[in-house]
Write a protein that binds this DNA or RNA. Sequence first.
DNA 1: GCGTAACCTTACGCACGAGTAGGTATGCTG
DNA 2: CAGCATACCTACTCGTGCGTAAGGTTACGC
Lengths: 212, 212
Amino acid sequence: MSTTPAFKRLPRAVREQQMLDAAVKVFSRRGYHAASMDEIAEDAGISKPMVYAYLGPKEDLFVACLHRECTRMIEAIAGAAAPDLPPDERLWRGLRAFFGFVGAHRDGWSVLYRQTRGEPPFAGQLATMRARMVEVIAGMLDDALRAQGREARETDLEVIAYALVGASESLADWLADHPTADPEKTATRMMNVAWLGAGQLIEGAVWRPASE
Amino acid sequence: MSTTPAFKRLPRAVREQQMLDAAVKVFSRRGYHAASMDEIAEDAGISKPMVYAYLGPKEDLFVACLHRECTRMIEAIAGAAAPDLPPDERLWRGLRAFFGFVGAHRDGWSVLYRQTRGEPPFAGQLATMRARMVEVIAGMLDDALRAQGREARETDLEVIAYALVGASESLADWLADHPTADPEKTATRMMNVAWLGAGQLIEGAVWRPASE
DNA sequence: GCGTAACCTTACGCACGAGTAGGTATGCTG
DNA sequence: CAGCATACCTACTCGTGCGTAAGGTTACGC
């Protein structure tokens, strides 16, 4: 009887992490709806009622995943991009941290962006987080502008920042789908597109439609 | 009896369009899974079995929506960006057509991108379409390069194109969420980011990490 | 060594929504 | 006006998967 309990009893904190790991994995593979609580439980090496006891119903579980992955990502980026650096250096470090994170947590990224985007109950959370990112980037651009004694309409900066965030997300998807690709190199490419583009804009260059 | 039939009998082709309209609307509002066939039928002013008779089960219905919206969009863009124009003009017209389409078909855009992305059964279709876009953009960049007697590694171009497509998608989302925003203006902003960025890259400029 | 509390399980109820069976009305063709 | 095809409906079945009730088992305090 007391030979091999096969499954050891573990403290709550440990089980919760195992469950979240399993949930992120299954959610990313199947999508929110197709993921069944049974599969998550099985993958975590635990039975379903435990999941409900610790993390609550499916929706709460997903939010918990979202929250954990989101926190990890924000920390990774914030830790890398110190606010007292010059703008391009800040952007570069932020990008490097971002792509590094995605490369190391492809499942987490998938849950965060691919799944969350389309599901009305969660889309708001994602939008909030993205808004924070956009604000930071826009602030950075604004700093760079003011350092040159210039100004720009707020909306313009916001939209540019939005485009940069979108481009980064898109490349992150590309990275997640190409396991052999190098996060560092991807970050460099993104930096080229972002900074040379945004950089020229800051210099005052403007492209206009030719005619009509 | 023959007073007011309340709902006239209509030919199949008309009903199908009404159903697709309703489906796009409901899918975009609720998401694929949360959308019920009952709600779609009701919104189309018709009963459920008719939907099944004409468009088949839910998955087929969604694919039909996808197909219609996708075709409309491709046509709008292809019609605007003639291949014999100079690269920047081509890009500009393509972008203008794209944002014009999104502004006029916000629901369709939502279905196409927000919903399709996260659902494994459909994600492939979207990926194929996006790949076509990327290929076109990459080809354009390549043309511009060759015109200057230069070369670039294929992967680099592809990644840059991917970033541009991602940025455009992201701004399209922004546009879809800001009903008061002007598609034309959004297109101009995107063009600034895209062309001045990519343009500088084509001139041979390269940004490198500073140290370490 | 025994209670008790936390951990963990099997086995079920139940709602919701996809898909269908079978029947009714309408308009077109001869 | 007969006949037939097509548009259309009400009312049902049934699978699937979320969430739970009630009961076993292991560890730790005394």
